[in-house]
Design a protein around this nucleic acid. Structure first.
Length: 419
DNA sequence: TGTCCACAGGAAATACGGGGGT
DNA sequence: ACCCCCGTATTTCCTGTGGACA
């Protein structure tokens, strides 16, 4: 008997290795790569003429630096997944090298405001990057932080580049932060300050105080979403690095590229689709087929909804549950009032204080915006005006959403509403 | 043609909570 | 530790509305 278990384990391992498609998963997930690794992949991608215009644009913008000039600030705009951050980091790294060769003093800092932070946090993080101050939770004034940064930079000559990633992500008092960077800091330091902003909101600077905005001299460059050709190039480079050769049907990469460019033009999502397809194919012990891509795409779509609702506010979850439940009972005509009643009961069952109907109406609009439901306002004559609610997601997703919501409230079975 | 339903959705008021100053 | 301020969430109040029905 023992022998058979050993054989089983061995054959299973052999089988799994024989079916392995992913050879080097790091190349499917940049997080797992070192900065050098990322740059190496990027070099290949850029060499294939992807992001050519943007590279020319930014390079020529920084060119005056090599003739003792002073480039104005730069604003890099574009949707998520268009490679703004990594391209800028790459270019700044290149500029740094070039400056070293030509003995031009240059230093760069990358301030990543990946989550919304108040002015204090942003300044403190910047000061920490520069080594100008320690990390404070609180208890130090904004002015002290600014002084620390000034003091640190006062002795620095040459070019100082500060790359402010997600520059629209300053939650409170963005004006003070930018007033400091744009108006005050350049006057108090000897070096030449160049700010690089990146944002996925085209009009992020519009919210700034007009006085600050007026003295913000900057040039804008826009990163367009990748088109199918670009995505195909990017995917092919990743495929050769990450996957075993010959494990993929013809047309898989073009299909992923086409789907992704049509839906979002986001390279990260395209690579994600490739990864999911590969994993799915591995599980099914076959090559990556067009069908696997289709399945993976559906899986991602489903996950998107499920994570959206799982991480969303409680009341939104409750409202969606009510809408799903109500639509089953009355697939054709679920109106706001009925849905609110169900919501009210659900809240009672999970001991959540229900919001008013006015707020519930806004929740429905939000669910509509996210694409869970379609809620259009209709007039039923003397029976009043109301929203008509239809489910906008496929049946399997509905089931998953319902169990997810119940799990969020710590329940397993369907809720028994009393009345 | 006027009425009236059952809400939509805007605006103002109010509650709440967290961060920063003292 | 305490207070104040400010941004956000929610409630309250209100006006508007399209079409069935009498």
């Amino acid at each position: 008997m023992q022998g058979s278990v050993h054989t089983l384990i061995r054959t299973q391992i052999d089988k799994a290795t024989a079916n392995a498609i992913v050879r080097n998963p790091a190349y499917l997930d940049d997080e797992q790569l070192s900065r050098e690794g990322q740059f190496a992949v990027l070099t290949e991608i850029f060499n294939a003429n992807v992001r050519d215009r943007e590279i020319r644009d930014v390079s020529s913008h920084f060119a005056p630096m090599f003739q003792n000039g002073h480039p104005v600030h730069l604003s890099v705009l574009g949707k998520t997944g268009t490679g703004k951050t990594i391209t800028i980091l790459y270019l700044l790294h290149e500029f740094e090298e070039l400056c070293r060769e030509r003995r031009i003093p240059f230093r760069q800092y990358h301030l990543d405001l990946c989550c919304a932070v108040p002015c204090f946090r942003a300044l403190n993080n910047l000061a920490c990057l520069m080594g100008a101050s320690k990390y404070y939770k609180r208890g130090i004034s904004l002015d002290d932080l600014m002084l620390a940064i000034e003091k640190h930079l006062r002795s620095v000559s040459g070019y100082v580049t500060v790359f402010i990633d997600e520059s629209d992500n300053i939650r409170t008092d963005a004006d003070s932060f930018y007033k400091f960077l744009i108006k005050r800091l350049p006057q108090r330091i000897e070096g030449k300050l160049i700010l690089v902003f990146a944002s996925n909101r085209l009009n992020w600077a519009d919210n700034l105080d007009p006085r600050i905005k007026s003295c913000l001299k900057m040039r804008e460059t826009i990163f367009d979403p990748y088109d199918a050709t670009d995505l195909q190039t990017i995917l092919e480079i990743r495929v050769t690095k990450a996957l075993r050769a010959g494990m993929m049907d013809e047309g898989v990469v073009p299909m992923i590229a086409a789907l992704s460019s049509r839906n979002h033009g986001d390279a990260r999502k395209a690579v994600d689709l490739l990864t999911r397809s590969a994993q799915l194919a591995e599980k099914q012990c076959q090559h990556i087929t067009l069908d696997a891509v289709r399945q993976a795409s559906e899986e991602i779509e489903r996950d998107k909804y499920v994570t959206l609702i799982r991480t969303g506010p409680k009341h939104l979850q409750a409202a969606l549950y009510a809408a799903l439940l109500g639509s089953e009972k009355r697939p054709k005509s679920l109106h706001t009032g009925d849905a609110y009643l169900l919501y009210d009961h659900f809240c009672g069952a999970v001991s959540l204080r229900p919001l008013t109907q006015r707020a519930f109406s806004d929740l429905l609009s939000e669910l509509d915006m996210y694409g869970f439901i379609r809620a259009r306002t209709v007039s039923r004559g003397r029976y009043g005006r109301s929203k008509e609610i239809h489910i906008a997601v496929a049946a399997p997703v509905v089931a998953e959403l319902k169990s997810t919501i119940l799990a969020c409230f710590g329940m397993v079975g369907p809720v028994v509403t009393r009345r």
